[in-house]
């Protein structure tokens, strides 16, 4: 495992911890999109079907379990927790997330590395992850006061994507046989979606003012 990959996994982990911290200690999910969180839970459920079939390493198994548990518990908190659910910004979280699940599934049936159940679900999870952030970005744009933790959550999630691309570039030169075009192309699309957010995040950080995205 190279440093970019490790740093990518760690920023991904930090993003989840930041979100859980906000939900668990502040008991608030204001500014957090439930739709995006539901999509991530689906992404991990579909991708980690191989959890008990295909063993890679202890690190891999533990991280998969962490991402599965954290994504489902975040959804649970936002839907079921007495206090947290009241802070959910339902009126602004209006992205029709169900309508992006089906196209991703169709795309996975058409473009996959092999036409087997697990491979199709893997491709589906890759396509879905690429667009899962959209409801969150839309919600951020509609939120007047983006709190620091929500901004940091999206920032770390975006950093994870950028680091994964550097990891693929590194792997391309060090392990030329290791190529997953599906995840590379979907990963680049996903990272581009963050570009706008990153631009405003860095400006607000440089000028030391509160993050606000233009409508």
């Amino acid at each position: 495992m190279n440093l970019f990959r490790l740093a990518g996994d760690m920023t991904h982990l930090v993003s989840v911890v930041v979100l859980l911290l906000k939900i668990h200690t502040i008991k608030s999910c204001a500014g957090v999109s439930l739709k995006t969180q539901e999509l991530y839970a689906l992404v991990f459920a579909a991708r980690y079907l191989d959890l008990f079939v295909h063993f890679v390493s202890l690190y891999n198994t533990v991280m998969k379990l962490v991402f599965l548990a954290s994504s489902f518990s975040i959804v649970w908190y936002m839907r079921k927790h007495k206090i947290v659910r009241r802070t959910y910004d339902r009126e602004h979280d209006t992205f029709r997330h169900h309508f992006i699940v089906l196209p991703c599934l169709v795309l996975a049936l058409l473009i996959n590395e092999r036409f087997t159940f697990r491979e199709v679900m893997w491709a589906f999870s890759i396509y879905l992850e690429a667009v899962a952030i959209l409801p969150q970005l839309v919600l951020l744009q509609r939120t007047r006061n983006i709190d620091n933790l929500t901004g940091q959550y999206v920032f770390f999630l975006g950093a994870y994507r950028v680091l994964y691309i550097l990891n693929w570039i590194y792997r391309y030169f060090t392990e030329p046989h290791f190529v997953h075009w599906i995840s590379w192309i979907a990963g680049i699309v996903q990272t581009v979606l963050y570009a706008d957010f990153f631009y405003y995040y860095i400006i607000s950080w440089k000028n030391n003012v509160k993050l606000e995205l233009p409508a």
């Binding site: 996994d9 991280m63 991402f67 590395e113 092999r114 491979e119 893997w122 990891n167 075009w181």
Partner: peptide, 10 residues
């Protein structure tokens, strides 16, 4: 081919 590569990323 890429199809035979094991998937070791998260």
């Amino acid at each position: 081919s890429s199809g035979s590569n094991p998937k070791d990323e998260l």
